[in-house]
């Protein structure tokens, strides 16, 4: 049984800075065998949690990226129709008998992520990413699988889980997901990291970064997030920007204002946001941050 502290250490070993609550949520999810629903703004590192857990615990990661129109064929299973047709044609030519059971056997079954995840000998990490992008009907599919951990295939019967995966579901809150799905999950909200946490993330992810630059970047990004932006920069953007600054051999934002201002494209991803932070505002934010 992996405790919250163990999770924190495991995640730190793969350079993921997890706070106490997130580690506890992961520990509870694996102990109670319930899916963990992670909600938060885009860019706070929800997907990265699942990737890091898989890496830290040496489990395989099965990812299901959700989008509008996703259905059972793409997520649970599908019959390999072309192979079935070829088998029929071949049997016809050879004059051999072909039973219906032969055609609907596991040889012709194409396992999709949800079925794959429960049929592994070692429990994997199943990441259902951006569930709010899928239709409401898809949630009904998930309910069946996440509560019973088995899939019913009319031609074969029920396929129970060999092992139960650690299920992590992420949502950006684009659409409110149903109470029924929420009730089956444990819930954790991930916020943008505070300055100290972001500083640790930069230092862990980019060991080449000097302390001075890392402090400057963390403080500046925290200030930038308070501005009225359409797309608030996430942790990934912070890391991109820091890497760009390291590449340009900038060690102090205040000493290289003009050059560093030009690299803001790493943080501000829309035209309106770029217009929102003109040079004088940037200068002021950097001065405030340092």
């Amino acid at each position: 049984m992996t405790s919250a502290k163990d999770y924190q250490q495991l995640l730190a070993s793969v350079a993921y800075v997890a706070d106490e609550r997130l580690s506890l949520a992961l520990s509870m999810a694996s102990m109670l065998e319930r899916p963990l629903l992670l909600e938060g703004e885009a860019g706070v590192g929800k997907t990265f949690v699942a990737q890091s857990v898989a890496k830290a615990t040496s489990r395989s990661l099965i990812r299901l990226q959700c989008y509008e129109g996703l259905d059972a064929q793409q997520t649970i299973y599908e019959w390999n129709y072309q192979r079935q047709m070829l088998a029929i044609a071949l049997a016809g030519k050879q004059g051999s008998a072909l039973e219906q059971a032969d055609l609907f056997s596991k040889d012709y079954l194409l396992e999709r992520p949800l079925l794959q995840a429960i049929r592994q000998s070692e429990p994997p990490v199943l990441l259902i990413d951006e569930v709010d992008r899928a239709d409401e009907e898809f949630e009904a599919l998930l309910l069946e699988i996440l509560s019973d951990f088995q899939v019913s295939i009319p031609e074969i019967g029920s396929l129970p889980a060999i092992t139960k995966p650690l299920v992590i579901i992420t949502s950006n809150g684009v659409r409110d997901i149903s109470d029924a799905l929420r009730r089956r999950c444990l819930f954790h909200h991930i916020d943008f990291p505070d300055i100290a946490t972001e500083l640790r993330i930069i230092q862990m992810q980019l060991p080449d970064c000097s302390l001075k630059l890392a402090q400057g970047v963390a403080a500046f990004v925290a200030a930038l997030r308070k501005e009225d932006l359409i797309k608030i920069p996430g942790v990934a953007e912070t890391l991109d920007w820091t890497a760009a600054l390291i590449g340009l051999q900038i060690d102090d934002l205040a000493d290289n204002l003009e050059q560093s201002y030009r690299t803001l494209v790493c943080l501000l991803k829309t035209r309106a946001d770029q217009e929102q932070i003109p040079y004088p505002i940037y200068e002021k934010l950097v001065a405030g941050a340092s």
């Binding site: 506890l24 509870m28 102990m31 629903l37 109470d179 929420r182 999950c185 819930f187």
Partner: peptide, 25 residues
């Protein structure tokens, strides 16, 4: 949960674990 991990009955962890369990949004 508390039966398996009595440590979670400590003040801070107790609140956090109940929050994770009972909150949905």
């Amino acid at each position: 949960l508390f039966s398996h991990q009595p440590k979670l009955l400590e003040k801070r962890a107790f609140r956090q674990s109940l929050q994770i369990l009972f909150c949905t949004r």
